[in-house]
Design a binder for these strands. Structure first.
Lengths: 199, 199
DNA sequence: GTTAGCATGTAAGGAGTTACATGATTTT
DNA sequence: AAAATCATGTAACTCCTTACATGCTAAC
């Protein structure tokens, strides 16, 4: 029954949903799933893990001691794993296709867990993201028109590049959305294996 | 003699270097010069202005009262302008071509003031930025190789797109650097007007 | 004369970082 | 046995946002 949520907590739950992990290892994987390889600090991670334990979504698990050798005092690794509540909560978060899912800070993480998101939600998030970016394109165009004459070549170039980047991302989303609509979201390989004709 | 610095303070000094402004107007311009049209809140801006005043870099200036009509009690607008110290400090910040200038959060703002940055510094910042991004490209490639088989199509697609984006930005920097080296940093228009053959 | 937008501020709090502090395990 | 790296944590601080609170000025 926690109130908190954040990209970080979502990402942690998502990674622990795959397999139990200890903090140190978790951090390395988080750096991939959180955008742009920002190195998340332990000063953020460990308090977050504690909060998730308090919320009842994960539990600390002593890593399988090599049988019998009661070394109860030693605590070198703490492996965290999802509880039933945690799994349920993660499913809820996965299914949330609201603005929170397509804002800059969150979109990447939601996308990273698309394999476990249902098709309808995926589509809604992608479309939400696209229209968010289209608004931004409008903003850039307006800014370019407004400042066209008053502004030096560098500022102009910066805005032009910004506009290009956002437009490029919109095209990327268009392709993804097309892919989703045709149900062929794994154009890149066939690894899904057994049952992939349709849902 | 302030110790503080930050993107925000740099951007404020830069904008006030162009012309005196009051907070409300400043905020609107800040939204263009700070990346991606994030709407900076007044809760950040006004305390920042106060800090800059305390540091002696800007002063509050009653906007030219329509002559004689002593309305000293009324304070509707507060126009801020740079002091001599503030100008000097801004020049120092402009000349700093260290890592601080090419990190994600700062690069955009430094670029926005390139028109008032000397050519050597511009080049160093662009090159610094490029090598920063090239490191990130390496990181992405490594991540792609590492996770190639273990990972679903969506995660792969996300990493691929991230890599593409960074590579694209590197190409953009390459063009800019070439432009700088040829001294033709205003390819896009001739609006500089009168004296633009050389420095 | 009232609404909308201009204009300035403060207090509380969220989300993260850095720097610090400690200890275990593996490699050289 | 020293060094590197794995592993966990805390305290202080930064930078920003949200929500609140106030008042002026132009437009309708």
């Amino acid at each position: 029954m926690g109130k908190r949520s954040s990209v970080l907590e979502f990402a942690v739950l998502g990674l622990l949903h795959e397999s139990p992990l200890h903090g140190y290892e978790l951090r390395k994987r988080l750096n991939s799933v959180l955008g742009s390889f920002r190195a998340l600090s332990y000063g953020s991670l460990y308090p977050c893990l504690k909060a998730l334990v308090r919320a009842g979504w994960i539990v600390e698990d002593e890593p399988t001691d090599p049988v019998g050798t009661a070394r109860s005092g030693k605590r070198s690794k703490i492996v965290y794993k999802l509880t039933a509540d945690g799994k349920e909560h993660f499913q809820t978060l996965l299914g949330d296709a609201g603005p929170a899912a397509w804002e800059d800070e969150n979109f990447g993480v939601h996308f990273a867990f698309f394999a476990r998101t249902d098709a309808t939600t995926r589509l809604r998030i992608l479309e939400g993201r696209r229209s968010r970016l289209e608004e931004r394109v409008e903003g850039f165009r307006a800014a370019l028109l407004r400042t066209r004459e008053r502004v030096d070549a560098y500022t102009l170039e910066l805005q032009r590049h910004g506009l290009d980047s956002v437009e490029r991302e919109v095209r990327w989303l268009n392709e993804l959305i097309d892919g989703e609509r045709r149900g062929q979201h794994d154009q890149h390989h066939e690894s899904t294996g057994t049952t992939d004709q349709s849902t």
